[in-house]
């Protein structure tokens, strides 16, 4: 349903600008959980913004259900890494979740129902009237996820959403993401730099190459559902896939380091 064909993105003008993304081609199918993993600084966030319609590609096309993406579409909701800035501190939790529901498109009763259901599925019903800054980081990111769910998108795009959280909170939220997919049937694109995470929650992993980035390798994760933080990670195929991702990223990092030393190459 979401398709990128020959997409490249250059910042700045033709001669002096920086090429961040080159010739990116992949497709996300309905109901999938796809993770995008790559070395730090490879341009993952650029890819995400291209998919969200927040950035226009320099060449190539991004389409959703065959329509070209010119601005952020109704089918997509975003969850950013920096929850403290992307949640509005002057709105209560419920107001934050409700905010994207435009009164012109969604009736008031409908909106109230959606907010309640979304908060319930992330386990924050009790905190509807709190302010986001009164909650812990993990709870704030749950609010951002609830906001994404309440919007009822076809695709939930998540930009390193758990990057700033501690390991235990992160594990809880990874399981939450998979539950949300099952409960709401939403497609999830999940950008991360955490290798275990990229394999654990994914149906498919897109491994990105060094900057200017492209799809280096694509892995299908055959681990059975529902996944479990202990048993899934003990599965030999988990270790195998994790190894593939790790090797690919290590090579890319080395490639980037040698480019940095010798820019003529």
């Amino acid at each position: 349903m979401l398709k990128l064909e020959g997409v490249s993105k250059r910042y700045g003008d033709e001669n002096t600008g920086v090429l961040a993304v080159r010739d990116l081609t992949f497709e996300i199918g309905e109901g999938e959980v796809v993770t995008v993993v790559g070395p730090s600084g490879c341009g993952k966030t650029t890819i995400l913004k291209l998919m969200a319609g927040l950035l226009a590609p320099s060449s190539g096309a991004v389409t959703i259900d065959g329509r070209p993406l010119v601005k952020p579409p109704l089918e997509i909701a975003l969850v950013f890494q920096d929850y403290s800035a992307s949640l509005y501190p002057w709105m209560r939790v419920a107001e934050n979740v409700r905010f994207p529901l435009d009164p012109k498109r969604v009736s008031s009763a409908e909106a109230t129902g959606r907010v309640e259901r979304a908060l319930e599925s992330v386990g924050l019903t009790r905190f509807a009237d709190s302010y986001p800054w009164q909650l812990s980081g993990g709870m704030q990111q749950r609010v951002a996820i609830a906001r994404g769910i309440a919007y009822q998108p076809k695709i939930l795009l998540m930009d390193e959403p758990f990057g700033a959280l501690d390991a235990q909170t992160r594990a809880e939220l990874e399981d939450l993401v998979m539950r949300v997919r099952d409960e709401f049937g939403v497609t999830i694109v999940f950008v991360t730099h955490d290798i275990d995470e990229s394999v654990y929650i994914a149906d498919r992993v897109l491994i990105m190459g060094p900057r200017p980035t492209y799809v280096e390798q694509e892995l299908v994760v055959g681990l059975p559902h529902p996944r479990d933080q202990i048993t899934s990670k003990e599965d030999p195929s988990f270790a195998h896939l994790r190894g593939i991702v790790y090797r690919s990223i290590r090579e890319s990092t080395q490639a980037m380091a040698s480019v940095a030393k010798d820019p003529e190459r």
Binding site: K71, P72, A77, L78, F80, A85, M91, D102
Partner: peptide
């Protein structure tokens, strides 16, 4: 990021001014 968030949810200009820009 506060504006990007609003933009990603297709929030109308009028609401962005009164609910995001002004409070911030």
């Amino acid at each position: 990021l506060q504006l990007d968030t609003a933009r990603s949810f297709q929030i109308s200009r009028h609401r962005v001014i009164f609910r995001v820009l002004l409070p911030s």
